[in-house]
């Protein structure tokens, strides 16, 4: 659903990635198109207009896969206005972790890595003490996800947090069973994640449920993620499965495109019923084969899907509340109070 109202702040912040890379989500594009400005005009507005506090939020709200977009944000700022002495901390704070991450990232980084590095250097020169605010000692070596231009799921991650699963007999069995469907098997913080194609999703879930080694009889959680910049794979359906008998967990992800319907797993896990309804309610993702797909937490005619990234947080008062909630101006008679105070004085 198209969100009609966008705040001024979000407009500003979304211009930057728009100018940097024209492959944004359609919804954002449509909105921004009307107010789009030339790149050389837009770029200087960033450091001057956006206060330093809102900077991380600004880069988060368009929902780019972050490290790169952040790096690019700072790249734009740094290259087009190399001597920005007024607010040097702003780009520095943001760019520092990503720059560090880039520096220590695996060699198979994207083609954009050099620019990120290039961006990092002048920033580091401008403000030499950012690491103290960056992250705990181990962390910065962590991750740099794939660029927004690449529609495929994030593939390369830092060695300490995310790694390929090796020597896991069950995962190997899965891979053997679904050789083409499983595109990714990683381990992060000791938690196993597999990514599967949409077409094989239901089959795989059925297998996970029925298989003796898996026995994932419980769907502990099912939710979605919104990546507006990944064209063609805007949503990730994330199912956290648990096996009571084997005491093991597995996270299954599948990507679907905007407007596409995800396969429903309610036929396998009845407990997924309300979770899928919630995903439908909050993200607008439809589920094929769901017995009772209605909105669950919000009213049926609520505008938009709140957990999508383009949905502004200020949109709590909208046309629905105008229509259904009757605000009344109450004219309190404060004269009496004044008299009392006057007397007291």
């Amino acid at each position: 659903m198209q969100v009609a109202i966008m705040s001024d702040e979000s407009k500003d912040t979304q211009e930057v990635p728009e100018n940097a890379e024209p492959t944004d989500a359609k919804t954002v594009e449509a909105e921004v198109a009307s107010t789009a400005q030339p790149a050389n005009v837009a770029a200087p507005t960033l450091p001057t207009e956006t206060p330093s506090e809102t900077q991380p939020e600004a880069s988060a709200s368009p929902g780019n896969t972050t490290a790169d977009s952040l790096a690019e944000t700072s790249t734009v700022a740094a290259t087009e206005k190399p001597t920005a002495p007024a607010t040097p901390e702003v780009p520095a704070k943001v760019a520092a972790p990503s720059a560090e991450a880039k520096a220590e990232a695996t060699p198979s980084a994207e083609a954009k890595a050099p620019t990120a590095d290039a961006a990092a250097k002048p920033e580091a020169a401008a403000k030499p003490a950012p690491p103290k605010a960056a992250a705990p000692p181990k962390a910065p070596a962590s991750a740099a996800t794939a660029g927004a231009a690449k529609p495929a799921p994030p593939a390369k991650k830092g060695p300490t947090v995310t790694e390929e699963i090796k020597d896991d007999p069950f995962i190997d069995k899965l891979k053997a069973k679904f050789p083409d469907a499983i595109t990714e098997t990683v381990k992060t913080f000791g938690q196993r994640i597999i990514r599967v194609n949409k077409d094989a999703y239901l089959k795989l879930c059925r297998f996970l449920h029925d298989d003796e080694d898996g026995a994932f009889t419980m769907c502990a959680d099912l939710t979605a993620l919104h990546w507006p910049d990944k064209t063609g794979a805007e949503f990730d359906i994330v199912a956290n499965l648990y096996s009571v008998s084997k005491n093991q967990r597995l996270r299954v992800k599948t990507a679907i495109a905007e407007g596409e319907a995800a396969p429903s797993v309610t036929s396998i896990w009845a407990g997924a019923n309300w979770m899928e309804r919630e995903v439908f309610d909050m993200f607008g993702v439809k589920f094929d084969g769901h017995p009772d797909l209605r909105r669950i937490l919000l009213p049926e005619d609520w505008p938009g899907y709140p957990l999508r990234k383009e949905y502004p947080i200020e949109y709590r008062d909208n046309e629905w509340t105008d229509k259904h909630i009757d605000y009344r101006e109450v004219d309190y008679d404060t004269s009496l109070i004044d008299v009392k105070y006057a007397q007291r004085r």
Partner: peptide, 15 residues
Amino acid sequence: VPKIIKPPVGEIYHS
């Protein structure tokens, strides 16, 4: 713990 918390890129499910 740092005053400004910026976890690494990644995801976690904890229950």
